[in-house]
């Protein structure tokens, strides 16, 4: 029986649901080509960070001006170019090259923290030929006076501004830390998002005991991290008019299958590619195909969402019941007792 692995995501036709997520690998054109050869349905390019753009611009302007007119001998220290080519032009160039080299859709990624002038970069990315834009929202609100509602309003504004700037579909990579994810997700869709990526994975700092200082650390996911996106994909499937992609914790074909079963239109892979290489894409697809054959599924579309909570009238109650059930069924390992 022929297995149809094709999928639809953000209105794009994908030859498979597996999509390498935004990661450093995507900066290399050869790596992107290998992803396509391995069967990726689309590729997400590495994120262009808001800080990267704004901070670079502002830093350069700052250091061009910070020592100006200080002494009579040195009115300034550096020649001033007429204009800066920061971030977006390089990034747009990469988008153009990726589009030229690949036949699968190319999804650009913007990582944003605040509403601002940076959204013009979304337009530059579109003009470079990106098929879609993934908007990666990231906050670390440490100010105790800032309420969650303010954070949500800001995020929704970012989504609205970005969606207003471009005609290509925009997917929002969502944080798992909103207090009412379903509501926020709905508002993102209302603001123009055509897709939701569940979830954004935040890198947490570590402590260097030698230097007694905090340092940034990259925490790669494991399959154990899949549960959260699975749950929320299951909940949101059919409840929001947007494509859904599972991200965080997809390492095996089993993980990918679970994602599709709960309703994912696309399955994003990142940590697995970073640890075991781009070949993971074909391995996952091979595993998916074989499982589908064994279980007599003919297509991704057929099985997509078959285990979602679409028909559940009260998912919250359902989930709490599950929570109770899970805890009551848990037995402490012998060592812990």
């Amino acid at each position: 029986m022929p297995i149809d692995l094709s999928a639809k995501y953000l209105g794009l036709k994908l030859k498979s649901p597996i999509v390498p997520a935004a990661c450093p690998l995507g900066a290399d054109l050869d790596a992107l080509k290998k992803m396509e050869e391995a069967g990726a349905g689309a590729v997400v390019l590495p994120s262009l960070f808001e800080e990267q753009m704004l901070s670079e611009e502002q830093t350069l302007v700052h250091y061009l001006t910070h020592s100006k007119e200080q002494t009579s001998e040195a009115l300034s220290y550096l020649p001033e170019p007429d204009e800066f080519h920061i971030g977006a032009p390089d990034y747009a160039d990469h988008v153009r090259k990726a589009k030229k080299a690949l036949s699968v859709p190319v999804i650009a990624s913007l990582n944003a923290a605040t509403p601002g002038g940076w959204v013009r970069y979304a337009r530059e990315i579109e003009q470079a030929g990106a098929d879609a834009l993934e908007l990666n929202l990231y906050h670390l609100v440490s100010d105790p006076t800032v309420p969650g509602s303010q954070v949500e309003a800001s995020d929704i504004r970012i989504v609205r501004e970005a969606c207003a700037r471009v005609k290509i579909p925009v997917a929002v990579k969502v944080s798992p830390f909103y207090s009412a994810i379903a509501n926020v997700a709905a508002q993102f869709v209302e603001a123009g998002a055509r897709g939701l990526v569940l979830f954004n994975r935040f890198h947490q700092p570590d402590i260097n005991l030698d230097k007694i200082e905090a340092r940034p650390a990259v925490n790669l996911s494991t399959s154990a991290d899949l549960s959260l996106p699975l749950r929320w994909t299951a909940i949101l499937h059919g409840r929001v008019k947007a494509s859904l992609a599972v991200s965080s914790g997809v390492h095996t074909h089993e993980d990918a299958l679970k994602a599709v079963l709960v309703g994912a239109d696309a399955v994003c892979v990142c940590s697995e590619l970073l640890t075991s290489g781009i070949g993971a894409v074909s391995r996952i697809l091979k595993g998916m195909r074989s499982w589908m054959e064994r279980n007599e599924y003919s297509s991704i579309e057929q099985m997509k969402g078959s285990l979602s909570h679409r028909n559940c009238p009260d998912p919250e109650a359902f989930e709490r019941a599950h929570y109770v059930k899970a805890l009551s069924g848990y037995h402490l390992p012998a060592k812990a007792r």
């Binding site: 611009e57 350069l60 302007v61 007429d82 601002g116």
Partner: peptide, 11 residues
């Protein structure tokens, strides 16, 4: 002065 360098600085 800043338009071609940083809209953020302009704002």
């Amino acid at each position: 002065t800043y338009g071609s360098k940083s809209q953020e600085i302009v704002s």
